[in-house]
């Protein structure tokens, strides 16, 4: 398990970028943490690390955003608005998870039973001062 303390948004993005180097086709990254804890920033870093050119924004509205064009395709999920796990079928979840891109899932704790056993768990937490974030990375 690895702990990283970041002191501003850019450092959180850099942490994601650094982390992305170990990702391969089919990697699943489960992001967990409160509102405003840095999940979207970390995901932005992963996209930057993968070489995705376009702007990565919160996928809350569309549930999943696809970003092809990097070293690996990136599928960026937000489970925030899902009510039941069954709703994942509606967006073709299995095809993404068993596909050959990288899946990054925000609010992954909401779909715990549907997460593959092999994955990276990233926990984002608020630090002591307003800009500090504590990021925990665990490979399972």
């Amino acid at each position: 398990m690895k702990h990283i303390v970041t002191h501003n948004e850019e450092e959180t993005i850099q942490a994601g970028e650094e982390f992305s180097r170990q990702l391969t086709a089919g990697s699943v990254v489960a992001l967990v943490g409160d509102l405003g804890s840095g999940k979207t920033r970390f995901a932005k870093g992963i996209s930057r690390g993968l070489g995705v050119k376009e702007n990565v924004t919160s996928p809350t509205f569309t549930i999943v955003n696809e970003h092809p064009g990097g070293r690996l395709p990136l599928y960026h999920f937000d489970c925030y608005r899902l009510r039941t796990i069954a709703e994942l079928d509606e967006i073709g979840y299995d095809e993404y998870i068993f596909g050959s891109g990288v899946c990054v899932l925000e609010w992954a704790d909401m779909i715990e039973p549907k997460l593959p056993k092999q994955r990276f768990d990233i926990r984002c937490a608020l630090g002591a001062d307003e800009n500090e974030r504590i990021i925990t990375i665990e490979q399972r």
Binding site: L35, T40, R41, K44, N55, T57, S58, T60, F61
Partner: peptide
């Protein structure tokens, strides 16, 4: 110009939820 992260309405919704 565009948002770099959350949409304005999304911020309203999330703050309302808090």
């Amino acid at each position: 110009g565009e948002t770099k992260d959350d949409a304005a309405g999304e911020a309203f919704d999330k703050v309302a939820k808090m």
